[in-house]
Amino acid sequence: MTATPTQVPDEAGDEVLTLNNVEVIYDRIALAIKGVSVQVPRGGMIALLGANGAGKSTMLKAVSGLLAAERGLVTRGEVCFMGEDIGGLAPQRRVKMGIVQVLEGRRVFEHLTPDENLVAASAIHGSRHDMARNRDMVYTYFPRLRERRAAAAGYLSGGEQQMLAIGRALMTQPKLLMLDEPSLGLAPFLVAEIFDIVRRINREEGLSVLLVEQNAVAALEVVSHGYLMDNGRIVMHDSAEAMKKNPDIQQFYLGGAEGRNFHDIKHYSRRKRWLS
């Protein structure tokens, strides 16, 4: 297909998540992603970069099954989780299998306290013991939340809400954690703090992480590999180190556009899209 990864790290066979040539259409007319193939290795931490409207959130929703709620449909390709095609499953089933998505814009349950947010996310039929253990784990990773556990979540700060959203996702005991732009609207030091914690969770709990970001600088610091999405297609796939050095990435996503004016960049971008 048109998406031609420049260099595929060869770890085939041990992926938690494999997207194969996935196409998504909204409302039966709006083509949002066009033949996307992405792999997340077991226990790995991968970034999906791209500008606004590239189709990153759409891809995550195709994995978590939330597309249906927005009248979107996977019209081609397959989404496999641990080798199993999960195409037709309801979101609840996928969460049960171990896929969880942290939505863009935090979306905590505003009128519930952090404690209740965590309770709501723990499976109803799960044991009370598991719930208490998971909650303790969340509070160990995010000690700030423990301090504010009794306030309405709507009144937490942006960073705390993001932590709560991640913690809430952890309550489902996932195997794959997908974060949609967790850095959105947060101060840089908070972003670093949150990314560090996610990295620790990834290492210590053996959780695979798919990190969707526009903030490439911060994201590429913590992941091993990255994909770059543009206009509904994957246009680059490489190791984090290589991506950081890539002139295109530096140009558009790392803010290193010295010597070129805006007009040139737009022009270049246009040409790039034409090619991809």
Binding site: S64, L66, A69, K96, E110, A121, M171, T172
Partner: peptide
């Protein structure tokens, strides 16, 4: 109560 707060977020954690 979570459902009454946010459908999408509820689905996202398997409710």
């Amino acid at each position: 109560r979570a459902i009454s707060d946010d459908y999408m977020a509820s689905w996202s954690v398997g409710i």
